[in-house]
């Protein structure tokens, strides 16, 4: 079980890193979603994975024996909920960006930053440029 999980974790983490490094907005967002799932696998593995029993106390007993650790499962559940909400939000943002500007290349998205091609001109030089 553990080797399979480790393989799954590293493969999905590598794939998601590859996607996140992309300049394409949609690829980056999908990469982040995939990375969230890879991290969830890691969280799950941080408990005792070798026990396949459920993480509940059997009837008539007061303590857990040979059971999975319930805490990482609770953590994963929280992380899944947050990750899912953020994935939906980010997909909407990416779609809105693509619809409004027709672009999905991050280098072309310069609405919040001045163009790097435009030289930064101090005011007194700008006036000189305007006069001729």
């Amino acid at each position: 079980m553990m080797p399979a999980l480790v393989c799954a974790f590293w493969i999905s983490l590598a794939a998601s890193l590859y996607l996140v490094l992309s300049r394409d907005t949609l690829r980056c967002v999908i990469g982040l979603g995939l990375m969230g799932n890879a991290v969830n696998l890691l969280l799950l593995a941080s408990g005792r994975l070798q026990y396949t029993q459920p993480a509940v106390v059997p009837p008539g007993e007061s303590a857990l024996s040979l059971a999975a650790n319930p805490l990482p499962q609770a953590l994963v559940l929280t992380a899944i909920v947050i990750g899912f909400a953020l994935l939906c939000f980010s997909l909407v943002v990416v779609m809105a960006i693509a619809e409004r500007s027709g672009k999905d290349d991050l280098l072309l998205l310069r609405h919040t930053e001045p163009e790097d091609t435009a030289p930064v001109v101090p005011s007194f030089l700008e006036k000189e440029k305007e006069t001729p």
Binding site: L32, V93, L109, T112
Partner: peptide, 21 residues
């Protein structure tokens, strides 16, 4: 304009989500 907001959201979102992950 909406594009300014969306661009800002995206640029805030991606690195910060990477950090929380």
């Amino acid at each position: 304009g909406r594009m300014l907001q969306l661009d800002a959201v995206y640029k805030y979102f991606a690195p910060n989500l990477l950090a929380t992950l």
